[in-house]
Design a protein around this nucleic acid. Structure first.
Lengths: 101, 101
DNA sequence: TTTACTATTCGAGAACTATCGAACATTATG
DNA sequence: CATAATGTTCGATAGTTCTCGAATAGTAAA
């Protein structure tokens, strides 16, 4: 990954609220996967709604933060019916960890 | 480390120029330590001057970026004579890596 | 189709950041 | 002390980011 992309990831995680959001996605995803087979994860369902519950921010702001995380490549979201499923891109996280080695 | 401090570290690394600076410090420090005993590292000497050579930025801007990295706890600097010695705080980097696990 | 729920986009204001050059401070040396 | 080298601080400017509420759009269900 180019260094400019690494910076982009750091930027995405540099706002405290967005870091909370990212952590929430990671944690909730992990909860869902406890006791399931590996790789069966379809992502966190109703991610947007969950985020609205967890963070004290307007929906438009939350939408914006989701976009930033997607834009940095940290998460992938897809519409599922009325709502929103969301996955952490572990390979990107891993690359950033390698960078910090 | 509190999540707000983690965000601070990410913020420090979120500017591309500052990321270059940090990388430069890491790389130059590593060069110096090749072939030396472990833990003999006194830090990168003349870090400021080296930074001025590597980055196309004014001295005041570089001073500002050093401050940001220090403030986030990523590096520690001390004056040595006329110039400036600088060390990476590996434990902080390690904590951030753990956060991303 | 109407209604309700969910998410996005837009416009705006406040706050923050990156960057510069100029002036200043500190240290070493002739 | 005078000069040179190295860093810091200040004030300004241009640009970016966070946040909101209002308006809009997509989807599901009555």
């Amino acid at each position: 990954m180019k260094q400019s992309n690494i910076a982009k990831v750091f930027k995405a995680l540099s706002s405290e609220q967005r870091l909370n959001l990212f952590k929430m996605i990671c944690d909730e995803t992990e909860k869902l996967n406890l006791g399931k087979e590996k790789n069966c994860c379809e992502g966190l369902e109703k991610a947007f709604t969950t985020a609205c519950d967890c963070l004290d921010l307007s929906r438009s702001t939350i939408s914006h933060h989701f976009k930033e995380l997607q834009n940095a490549g940290l998460i992938t979201c897809k519409r599922v019916g009325q709502s929103y499923s969301c996955m952490v891109n572990k390979d990107v996280v891993q690359e950033v960890r390698e960078f910090l080695k």
